[in-house]
Amino acid sequence: MANNPTVWGVHMGAHVGDRPIDGGYVGIGWDKMGDLTQIAPDREAFKAALAVAYPDKKAGAIPVDAGSMFKFLHEIKAGDIVVYPSKADRMVNIGRFKGSAEYVANDPDDYLTHQHVEWLGHFPRNEFSQSALNEIGSFLTMFRIKRHKTEFLGKIDPSIKTSLPSIAADPYEAEDTTDDDTATVAASLQAEANTSDFVIKRLMTELTGHQFEDFMAHLLECMGYTARVTPKSSDGGVDVIAHMDALGLQPPIIKVQCKRITSPIGIAEVNQLLGTLGEGEFGLFVCLGSYTRPAIELERNRSKLRLIDGEQFVEMVLENYGKLSPRYRTLLPLKQIYVPDLPKV
Rank of each mutant, 00 (worst) to 15 (best):
Q190R: 15
D176M: 09
I160P: 11
S163F: 05
T113L: 12
L331M: 12
R90W: 02
V117H: 03
S166N: 13
W8E: 00
P343W: 09
Y172A: 12
K32F: 11
L203G: 05
P124T: 03
F215V: 09
I267M: 08
S159C: 01
T177S: 12
K155S: 12
T37M: 10
M223H: 01
I21M: 02
G60P: 07
V92L: 07
V314T: 08
G17D: 09
M244L: 15
V339C: 08
E175M: 13
E299R: 04
V256D: 08
D197I: 00
V270E: 00
T37I: 11
E151N: 06
H116I: 00
E175K: 00
K57D: 10
A40T: 14
Q312T: 10
G278I: 06
L288C: 13
T262D: 05
L153R: 09
Y291M: 07
R327W: 05
D31R: 15
K304D: 14
G60E: 14
T162C: 01
K255S: 10
V104L: 13
D56N: 13
Y225Q: 00
V229N: 02
S138M: 00
I200N: 01
P108D: 08
A53P: 02
L318I: 14
I241Y: 00
G289C: 03
L284Y: 07
D109Y: 15
H116Y: 14
S131H: 11
L73F: 09
R90P: 04
Q190V: 03
D109M: 06
F313D: 05
E269D: 15
L288I: 04
Y321N: 10
P5K: 01
H122K: 11
I200F: 06
H218N: 01
P108L: 11
A49K: 15
S290V: 07
R144W: 02
R147M: 12
V345M: 10
T113C: 10
G278N: 06
R202G: 00
A51V: 01
Q272I: 07
G248E: 05
A51Y: 00
Q272W: 03
S303V: 12
Y25A: 06
L140M: 04
L189T: 02
D245C: 08
S188N: 03
T208Q: 07
H74M: 03
Y225N: 08
G99F: 04
S303C: 04
G322V: 02
P231K: 15
F212Y: 15
P333C: 03
Y328R: 01
A217V: 05
K77G: 04
M1H: 14
P55N: 10
S166I: 10
L331F: 07
L273M: 06
P264W: 03
A227K: 05
S129T: 15
Q250T: 13
V240Q: 09
D109S: 13
V10G: 06
L164N: 01
H15S: 14
S234V: 12
K149T: 08
S233V: 12
F70W: 11
F123P: 05
K344M: 10
G224I: 01
A51G: 08
L249G: 08
L274V: 11
H218V: 10
E279A: 13
T330K: 14
D180V: 12
D107H: 08
R147I: 03
N134P: 07
E175N: 05
A66E: 01
N320G: 06
L342Y: 12
G29F: 04
A169N: 10
V117M: 13
A61H: 05
G283W: 03
W8S: 09
P108M: 02
P124N: 09
I253L: 11
G23Q: 10
Y84F: 15
D239G: 09
L207E: 01
